[in-house]
Design a protein around this nucleic acid. Structure first.
Lengths: 364, 364
DNA sequence: CTGAAAGCGCTAACAC
DNA sequence: GTGTTAGCGCTTTCAG
């Protein structure tokens, strides 16, 4: 039997076995430190024999860096977040960072801050739908870089928050493009199902949508709120489709996750066909959006680019505290057209659009 | 302006301000330590003024406990895992633990171990589909409690692995119950779409399924493998429904996640109706299973109980290293009947079932 | 109940 | 390139 006892091998043990000083061991495990190849080899061999790994806590105590990033999330049922989580974690791991996870459904901001700060994380990524501003401020006060993922700072406590950075997709342009698409494809009674009313994502998407509609002299025909949750989106749909009233011919739903709920409600509770009776557009482009059951037309948030931007931003902030503080990165998205929107061609030519000059295609 | 400088307040600073010793500060922040109420109050006030929080790394260095649990996951697109992650994290947080996340798609076992072990986590939860045995052994060697979530140890390296605990639902019984249900509801050509062939979940589910079928003198009519992935499940379906051949009248799919893919393929590529033309049963009971588009009959893995069991097990192991080492907890699940299975009543009486004595219901 | 002193495992200066 | 020394911030004996 190999001795299975407490495996508390320290750098001193390794040093002893390798017949070098403790510092030599340390340097061997510090990328970029200067050790002779021979020394390094001796250390490595001893370390291997003893099954030694440096103690990250001791290291972080002296260096002041933990190589841990705190990641705050709240609602994982919307696949956008697991997907982001996975990519973020992998990207950070590549840089030698690890993710300490905080799921924040119930707990309040103050407790969370206390917990996060104890671990002296090097940075924080906030992807929680709520409570951004409180938490963000506390962290900024504690002088640790915070980057908001998929949201921006509210205007509630905008005192010393210039330091908080953010990465998000172009929600405004997205809302606009969707409005444009819906009008051009001939829809007349266009409704909006909102996400969380206070969230920056919802605010921006709705504003863009309104502006896009206005560009065509149109406006939101009906509106209900789903608060980014599945069950509430169903209720919102029912509200918009009260029996005996005229109903929307298109709905822009503020997230794919809610859009699925809306589509299910439309089809299986209200007996409506998509897109023949109602068109539906989502936002996010989560994996499910292309599933056969939905084929949802939606605005793609380019996750990889958002993750990359987040990681780089964090990196910058980590190396130079002041430099990119408060930087706000907006990633362009793009409309993904699938089958959940009806294209009413005849209407396009007759009413909505300025008649385009028909360029006859010449075959070569 | 408040001074936004490096906020490195230590217990010494607090001690000084509160006019007590450093130990007094420490004791104030150590649950269950003996401090006079007056001292405690002074310390707390000073701490508040200075915005002090104990440094978790320093603490863990001396106590030997990090209050961090390493959680290893691999495939978040299957909602079962985000859901588990969320509950696990919340449950652990309640006990004062935090989750250090390791997403393991690409990286190999050894690297992962090295990384995890550096943080001297107090325990590890392995919910990754692959690589269990390697990783589990390394950790067991390093003497840190490992609990397998939703899987058990393979028999590959069963040397000193008695120490690895596991929590899972009763996959065997689940497979059996599904077989029984499918046969009794009158299906004749019952197929199986497998998950990852090496995973314990797949092995157990399939074995239970076979046994259940055998109880009725039936057997698996067709089989293909989807490896727990969405795209592969589609391919598996296509394979099972080659044109020109007779096709299954029921499919048991080893996970809900794959079942959605199967249903989409059946409906939108093959033009078949569910359950009229084919019945589909899944496994897991993820949130999507009850969505209107699927209404999937499936075997429920009771997540909350599994999480609770995992947390308690970990707790036990943490307090008494030897006690519950190697304990394996199996949680009973239950079949959730929705609309994806056709009940062919006439067949039940005529062929499959031993004709039951009809107990006429007496109305009182 | 409280304080002084020692030390967890490591890295960063500093001399050599 | 290498070893010696000091000390990161905390908890924990041990006296008092």
């Amino acid at each position: 039997m190999i001795e299975g006892m407490k495996n508390n091998i320290t750098s001193i043990d390794v040093a002893r076995l390798a017949q070098v000083s403790q510092s030599a061991v340390s340097r061997t495990f510090t990328p970029g430190a200067s050790v002779a190849e021979a020394t390094r080899a001796k250390v490595l061999e001893a370390a291997l024999r003893l099954n030694y790994r440096p103690n990250a806590h001791a290291r972080s105590l002296i260096t002041g860096k933990s190589r841990i990033i705190g990641l705050v999330l709240s609602y994982l049922e919307n696949l956008f977040y697991p997907a982001a989580l996975q990519r973020l974690s992998e990207r950070l791991q590549k840089d030698g960072y690890h993710v300490l996870l905080f799921i924040n459904q119930t707990s309040n901001a103050d407790d969370l801050v206390t917990e996060i700060l104890q671990y002296h994380v090097d940075g924080i990524i906030l992807a929680a739908t709520t409570l951004s501003s409180d938490l963000a401020r506390s962290c900024a006060d504690a002088n640790i870089p915070v980057v908001l993922f998929n949201r921006v700072m509210g205007n509630s406590g905008s005192n010393n928050l210039q330091s908080v950075s953010s990465v998000r997709s172009d929600n405004l342009a997205g809302g606009k493009e969707i409005a444009n698409f819906l009008v051009k494809s001939g829809h007349k009674r266009i409704a909006y199902i909102a996400g969380n009313e206070e969230s920056s994502t919802n605010l921006e998407r709705e504003r863009g949508f309104r502006e896009g509609l206005a560009d065509h002299g149109a406006h939101i025909w009906g509106r209900a709120t789903g608060n980014y949750e599945f069950a509430q989106a169903r209720l919102a749909t029912l509200e918009l489709f009260k029996p005996g009233h005229e109903h929307p011919d298109a709905i822009f739903v503020a997230s794919d996750h809610m859009a699925f709920s809306v589509m299910d409600t439309l089809r299986y509770e209200l007996g409506l066909r998509i897109p023949e009776d109602v068109s539906v557009v989502g936002f996010d482009n989560v994996p499910q959006a292309e599933w056969g059951a939905y084929e949802l037309t939606t605005f793609n948030q380019p996750l990889d680019e958002m993750v990359e931007a987040t990681a780089s931003l964090l990196q910058e902030r980590l190396s130079d505290q002041e430099k990119s503080a408060g930087k706000s990165i907006v990633i362009a998205g793009n409309l993904i057209v699938r089958k959940s929107v009806k294209i009413i061609l005849e209407k396009i030519d007759q009413k909505v659009l300025v008649k385009p000059k028909l360029k006859p295609k010449v075959k070569t």
